[in-house]
Design a protein around this nucleic acid. Sequence first.
DNA 1: GGGTCCCGTGACAAGTCCGTGACGCGATTA
DNA 2: TAATCGCGTCACGGACTTGTCACGGGACCC
Lengths: 229, 229
Amino acid sequence: MHKRILVVEDEASIREMVAFALRKADMEAIHAADARAALVAVADTPPDLILLDWMLPGMTGLELARRLRAEERTADVPIIMLTARGEEMDRVNGLEAGVDDYVVKPFSTRELIARIKAVLRRSQDDDATGSIEIGGLRIDGPAHRAYAGDVQIEIGPTEYRLLHFFMTHAERVYSRAQLLDHVWGGSVYVEERTVDVHIRRLRKTLEPFGLDGLVQTVRGSGYRFSATP
Amino acid sequence: MHKRILVVEDEASIREMVAFALRKADMEAIHAADARAALVAVADTPPDLILLDWMLPGMTGLELARRLRAEERTADVPIIMLTARGEEMDRVNGLEAGVDDYVVKPFSTRELIARIKAVLRRSQDDDATGSIEIGGLRIDGPAHRAYAGDVQIEIGPTEYRLLHFFMTHAERVYSRAQLLDHVWGGSVYVEERTVDVHIRRLRKTLEPFGLDGLVQTVRGSGYRFSATP
DNA sequence: GGGTCCCGTGACAAGTCCGTGACGCGATTA
DNA sequence: TAATCGCGTCACGGACTTGTCACGGGACCC
């Protein structure tokens, strides 16, 4: 899980220490030395999380937090505040501004990474869809299970993800590239032919249950999931 | 879905922040600054959910939770506890009092709303509780004990919390991160693999009673509790 | 009918994920 | 104070996934 973290901090040494820790945790640090730079950086592509120093030249971190919350694009980006010990940290105002967590300096990088992970973890919503049924095949989203009528189907992780995508996007042709994007996640590179192999594996696990013809090949274009041949 | 939420919290600023967030999510906030006010407000018309601060003037939130559970009218109303980080929060006692979830301050409004929705969704199709039985395993909520048939099972605190969470959220896959959030609490940092170890310990204590296969591994996703393999 | 392109299929090696035993530490109890 | 217990972490090994490749059959176009 590669994440992009915006680090708004005027002290270069702290920025670098944080950047180093982030990189080790497979995250990318984007630097901003003051509020203005932060707003510019955010305008481009909103990061996954923002680390915000409490004291900044020009504008306080709190004020910046409010600004970020007001913007449509960044309203949902979690914010973690960095405060120095002894600094009057107005927790209530922070809460109002929608700050997700505080880390008090001096902090260990270990703790910082831990906090970041915790906040990221919480911010991802768990709206698992209910159950879907198409052509005698049913999947139970929350339970991560597939059924042919009443009998349960043993299915591997990637096969399940592929099946889940197909059933939530039935009756439509997807190219191998699109399937890679949606099922594998855009940030990994795998050969397109890999999709073929997984299609085959999926067909093979469905076949013993009389569920063939659901995954259809559209020659030259890709694959489609449909109950009607 | 218009819901009425009772907010029991002595700090006015937090009450207002919560009220603002609730309104944005199409819910109505009813305020109560202390336990007495809460009991009065509840006597009129029970709300759909109660947000309860852990520390209250006069009576602790935990005590109030017990009182609310004892009342006929409010026994079934879900309760979410608000606790400050660092406050010693006794999650076991919370379970005993029938608390449905915890949210640790500082929290973002986004997270709070998400938790509220999750609890509401769950309480829709949940009947009166007390004790739950799944697959020959029974837990007695108020006493926090576990039984296999009639024989009591010796079980540690963390194992019990894990088991309790599983039994109140059966037939659904949870990632290690989600389990950490719900069973360990939001703002603590432990390695995700720690979950594995506790899963194993739980399995090991259940096994001698023939209760194996209840805690299931979903490779690549997490764990699931279910009576059917 | 021939050629070309596209897809199905089986095998395989690397990689990932999970179960498991052990260890140290702090808290609680005797 | 000593002893026990529960908990979090680590390292190791095994089992399962998974991405890739090579081969061959079939479809489409001419």
